[in-house]
Design a protein around this nucleic acid. Structure first.
Ligand code: NAD
Ligand code: NAD
Lengths: 214, 214
DNA sequence: TAATTCTTGTGAAGCATTTCACATGAGCGG
DNA sequence: CCGCTCATGTGAAATGCTTCACAAGAATTA
């Protein structure tokens, strides 16, 4: 019975959630798969198929209740609750992420910072004191951290991630441009900006246009 | 004859390029599809099929010459040359990107910065003076910019992108969490970190492990 | 109540991508 | 130079994902 949900479907759930949030702000009460599709450059059939993996949320002839569907989406995505996030590496990109208030508004609360630079350890970023990387495993456990963001140089990322995994964390967002080894029960996602620039460069040189834009 | 190259293949080309660069640093001379696959958690067949879209670069029984294949990859990806990049929005994320030296090392040179904040206009970031957003279209044309990175609030991103498109730019990397409209000849890529966090949250809640890690 | 309109939910068809499997060619050791 | 090993390149099969197309349910109007 349990069908494997594809990566693309999960990403589109995020898009639906985003579109529904906007619709709610616009005080729109119901929305059809057609309208939802248009807003995120997809097809109505795609929208309905994606939703159908999780249940049937609409009314024939009418469409979907915006508020209800949004709430359903948030449950499916697991964002109807708060998440405790730790950020490792308070450099260029790390600092940008701590300052980004939107994450907290979405339920992703960065509650812990780590670095190995003595000048940074003990300093305060947006109300959070930077911890020593030495205490990583211990503090991740103590603080019940569920998601870790890795923003350290690629050369040390694997060591860091090994500790993160040892601490029992099951979800990692990695910014270092390196292929990290994690056990199968840990979900690792990579945010690789160079790869996106290379995609653009490929597209320009080869006159290629992507079919779908993530 | 011209086969459509899939998004996944293009992303994997970046992975091959990265792995080959490391192999070259390690003074490895030849590499098999098997080894290349292992390094990036792929299958040997996948590697060979991807490469086969662009030619045949290997030697049966031996594998691929690391230096040669790397050079071929860089030509295919269009990174055997320099690119002139402009960055719009010198806030949290924009500042992090300007400071990141790796982009320039890969041939992506951020040579132009834009903002609308009077306190930022005229200021110097890593040797580049921030221009007024008012002059965006004119300066993008004058300076022959080919790739634009958009790091402004979502509320203004569409206006900015319209100007970027009007200036004839064909490649855009967008960090704003919004679905931007661009004409079909323009390649738009979105870097959406919230979406990745939502992916992780989905994975944890649904006990889902992705098949492939991008 | 019946006819009309609208839009969902979903098997099945149509495409796309990945994996398989093997013929083929290169190097090497005896 | 022959036989053995290794690894590529590629059609074909298998798998996965998207789109089609339509039965069926809900509202609305007559
Ligand atoms: N800055 C960007 O725009 C950008 C873009 C793409 C990728 N990245 C990647 O993101 C990562 C961080 O980049 P950055 O520009 O912020 O680098 P950075 O050097 O500014 O920051 C790295 C931080 O990690 C800390 N660190 C180093 N070793 C550590 C360790 N062992 N334990 C804990 N902390 C440690 C450093 O003290 C520093 O604060 C890198 O892997 C980089 O390749 C950055
Ligand atoms: N900071 C992050 O970690 C992060 C994470 C995910 C997504 N984002 C997205 O990236 C974008 C930038 O985020 P940020 O945190 O750097 O925001 P920010 O507010 O720090 O920076 C935005 C910059 O854009 C400039 N700007 C505003 N309107 C402009 C206009 N019309 N023309 C030119 N410049 C203008 C502002 O002056 C500011 O310098 C946002 O869309 C945000 O949602 C940021």
């Amino acid at each position: 019975m349990k069908k494997r949900i594809s990566e693309s479907t999960i990403h589109r759930l995020s898009l639906y959630y985003r579109a529904l949030s906007l619709l709610e702000k616009e005080n729109v009460v119901t929305v059809s798969s057609k309208e939802l599709a248009k807003r995120e450059k997809l097809t109505p059939a795609q929208v309905r198929k994606d939703l159908s993996f999780f249940g049937s949320f609409g009314t024939r002839g009418l469409g979907y209740q915006v508020a209800e569907l949004r709430s359903r989406m948030s449950h499916i995505l697991g964002i109807n609750r708060d998440w405790r996030v730790a950020l490792i590496g308070i450099g260029n990109i790390g600092s940008a992420l701590v300052s980004y208030k939107e994450f907290a508004r979405q339920g992703f609360h960065i509650v812990k910072l780590f670095d190995n630079d003595q000048r940074k350890i003990g300093s305060n970023h947006k109300g959070i004191v930077v911890s020593d990387i030495k205490d990583l495993e211990k503090e991740l456990k103590e603080d019940n951290i569920e998601i870790v963001i890795v923003a350290v140089p690629a050369t040390v990322a694997q060591y860091i991630v090994d500790d993160v995994v040892a601490a029992g964390v099951k979800a990692i967002l990695n910014f270092a441009p390196i292929n990290l080894r994690v056990p199968p029960e840990v979900c690792l996602r990579n945010e690789n900006m160079s790869m996106e620039l290379e995609y653009l460069s490929f597209a320009v040189v080869n006159n290629h246009t992507p079919k779908k834009v993530i």
